[in-house]
Design a binder for these strands. Structure first.
Lengths: 162, 162
DNA sequence: GACTAAACCCAGTAAAATAGTCGGGTTTGT
DNA sequence: ACAAACCCGACTATTTTACTGGGTTTAGTC
């Protein structure tokens, strides 16, 4: 599984959608404004999300996107896999005929096991749980605003964090 | 934390190094041959790994690289962080002054928490554990070779795996 | 039925990251 | 002296990322 900014954009957009779809279909133009993602890039991403049956579209005025299934049934892994077309990380291409040493398929075995573990983890993080933690975060944000300013986070913290 | 093929190359190279350093320093030329990674690319990666104090170098003939600390003390996360200089995934740059709506820092909070969780997981996977599982895999590979061929994996399996 | 808001589609493209090349060094054991 | 190895910076090609701009459908509204 790749974990890039592309997947993060998709998860962010899906979270925005999940937070608002109770009011009917959500337009990409709205997501674009709120999350500062270009409309056409969102179109590309949602094309993939639709083909992966994670969202459904309603065309015409008043249209937009809704979740194709319950937010509990959509995982972060689903979203990332949908938009992040995978490349082959093993030099043997998943087959067993690497250069014929005892090292053959070393990376294959290593990465498939690491991958499945990370994938399993992200499969257990549902969009619904993100929505919930986001809603509680909103409260925290309001509390933060009542606090003094000096408690701001440094820029490097978020970067080196991982 | 980004999870790209670059980090995989680095982990693969470090695993190769860990498997062989008991015989003295391991040359990049050897890793290049065995793992099919270009020598100059390895030089770039090991420059970063050395500056991150994960490996030590011995110059001159008979030289090469050794682990700077015990294989138990080096995690997959250490390696990936060392070679994969991080980019900022949040549009607010880790600060709290996103476009002033109630959505501000949504992605910041989301990704820092997801990131730390994945980071924590990969921090617990040590190079030593990879070495061990690789050594047992070697046995499995030999067993596989005794089996008939039809049990080969499909290419798509390894790709869609994560 | 025209107008319009939206999804859809597609070709191109600039910037960045990836992966590698090249050509030179410097250090050090033999 | 020589050669093995690290070291380093600049350069290049390819791919991915993120975006621009053009169009086409679809469907609700006046």
């Amino acid at each position: 599984m790749r974990l890039t900014t592309k997947g993060r954009f998709a998860v962010t957009a899906m979270l925005d959608l999940a937070l608002r779809e109770s009011n009917g279909p959500v337009t990409l133009a709205g997501i674009s404004e709120r999350q500062s993602i270009s409309l056409s890039y969102l179109e590309q991403l949602f094309g993939k999300l639709r083909r992966a049956s994670l969202v459904e579209s309603v065309r015409g005025p008043g249209g937009g996107y809704t979740l194709a299934k319950d937010a509990e049934a959509i995982s972060v892994a689903d979203i990332i896999v949908a938009v992040d077309e995978p490349v082959d990380a093993t030099q043997c291409g998943g087959r067993e005929n690497c250069l014929g040493t005892n090292q053959r398929c070393m990376t294959h075995d290593l990465w498939t096991s690491l991958n499945t573990t990370i994938f399993d983890y992200l499969s257990k993080v549902s969009l619904a749980s993100l929505v919930n933690s986001q809603r509680t975060k909103d409260v925290n944000v309001l509390q933060d605003q009542r606090e003094a300013r000096p408690s701001r986070r440094s820029r490097s913290e978020s970067i080196t964090g991982l």
